[in-house]
Design a protein around this nucleic acid. Structure first.
Lengths: 126, 126
DNA sequence: TGCTTAATGCAACTGAGTTGTAAATATAAT
DNA sequence: ATTATATTTACAACTCAGTTGCATTAAGCA
């Protein structure tokens, strides 16, 4: 599947991810765009963009869904073993540009991993 | 806060965690106990047990809440830097008894971290 | 035994995310 | 350019995990 047609909804969503933040919650995107795009469409377009390898998704501490621009991801597979950092004060989420070392686990097959780190970001730290 | 009184609901929930599985979803607990305990009570007792350091909680891949017995946790603070492993086939979740190495992040304060690993468990691997 | 306060049940609610479907529109074929 | 067709969209209704308010019940203590 994935994106097939270049529609206004697709371009508006992609534009949001080119404004500087590398991670945005669906809730935030709905807040920003719901006057112009239906929320169902927002969910579906984001899923398509993820299938195409342009975005990857994860859940934050509260179980709400975020999408982030991919740097090392392709349609073949997401290189999303990187951690995500969420600031407890301002709520902002960043992808941390580093791989994590997964523990060795005998007799199990590891497929995906998600590391969510919480604390204070650069802005709120000082 | 935390548990103050030893009620049937508290004892029934604790009993579920002494049956062998170290992690149980709230959904599963409600399935097992809802004929005897109201689901609101289940949520509230579990929160109390977490405050008391007897359990710790986390969200799985689908954003649903799990509780697990604590081994190295106390009321003062949870030593929950250990990863959780969820089997993609059978859905079972285990706490993995190892600490993870968090990446060094300059100018940020790390408070909590959660690592969720997905794959196939010992049972489903073969 | 009775009192106080925490714990419980119940019903109604919240809100993120999903589904079904008819209408709209991007893209390819003519 | 026009048409055909398959995807995309909006809308409304729905799902379901989790929460809230409040009246009732019961644990633990004096």
């Amino acid at each position: 599947m994935g994106i097939i047609r270049k529609t206004p909804a697709v371009e508006m969503l992609l534009a949001e991810f080119q404004k500087g933040e590398n991670a945005l919650s669906v809730i935030e995107l709905i807040k920003r765009l719901s006057s112009q795009v239906n929320k169902t469409t927002i969910y579906r377009v984001l899923d398509n963009l993820e299938d195409d390898g342009l975005l990857h998704s994860f859940l934050d501490k509260n179980g709400i869904k975020w999408f982030a621009t991919c740097k090392g991801c392709s349609e073949a597979g997401h290189a999303d073993a990187h951690p995500h950092f969420q600031c407890e004060d301002c709520g902002k989420v960043d992808c941390l540009p580093m791989d994590i070392e997964l523990p060795k686990i005998p007799n199990r097959e590891i497929r995906v991993s998600q590391l969510l780190i919480q604390g204070k970001c650069e802005m709120c730290y000082n």
